[in-house]
Design a protein around this nucleic acid. Structure first.
Lengths: 117, 117
DNA sequence: TTGACATATGAATATATGTTCATTTGATGG
DNA sequence: CCATCAAATGAACATATATTCATATGTCAA
């Protein structure tokens, strides 16, 4: 393992080694984490999540709430689903979506708190 | 203000009205929140944040830690800066970056916690 | 079984984003 | 001043993403 490629002089060599050691070598971990946060990184999805904070809703009703077309909402719900932020439950023709866990609400709240300051 | 555009029949009309009322009308709010979370939505930026959890670092050292080129790191640091996740302090030629507030570390930890389960 | 309805899906398109390369800016020491 | 080094910047490119449109799937009721 070549750990020392001298592309340029380091300012704090010891700190660099230390931090490098602490950094998880598993690339997928960061990819998954990015995928998770990315789900929060779009205004439409945030509106959907915010709406679902108030009540579970079916796709059509969500579209009405957000004044968006059904397809767009469905696509975004799928994205939120893949990120495990929402879960779906079918009832006849209608599919109800809800927040998958309370943490989603927490994270939203913390985000709002941050941008307020 | 036309509040009732009957594009399709609602399943839960009362819930829709209620949720619609609760939804902040300010579009910018969601845009800003999205911008905030988006900063966490990339593996490179997450690695940078994770590294900075351990210690403030200058651009070159960060590039060494992540085995990435200086320019890419600088661009991403700028993104993190705009999202107010990191702050910079110049010392001679060198610019040190650090997490702007403890909340960043918290959010990272909560993210990791989520993807673990 | 047919028609109507709710949702999902796929293709197409426009826009956003991340990385690289080349160059510039800014600061230091000789 | 000048050479050198760290960082920032902008253009170019490739890739990812969000939305729309058209259509498919699945469910119910008549």
């Amino acid at each position: 393992m070549e750990d020392t490629i001298f592309t340029q002089r380091l300012i704090q060599p010891d700190t660099v080694s230390l931090v490098k050691q602490r950094l998880p070598g598993n690339e997928d971990l960061f990819q998954e984490l990015a995928f998770f946060f990315k789900a929060f990184g779009d205004a439409t999805r945030l509106k959907i999540l915010f709406a679902l904070c108030a009540s579970p809703l079916c796709v059509g009703d969500l579209a009405a709430v957000l004044a968006m077309n059904q397809s767009a909402v469905s696509h975004q719900l799928k994205a939120l689903s893949r990120a495990r932020l929402v879960s779906a439950r079918k009832n006849g023709k209608v599919v109800y979506y809800r927040l998958r866990h309370e943490q989603v609400k927490n994270l939203l709240a913390q985000g709002f708190e941050q941008i307020r300051s």
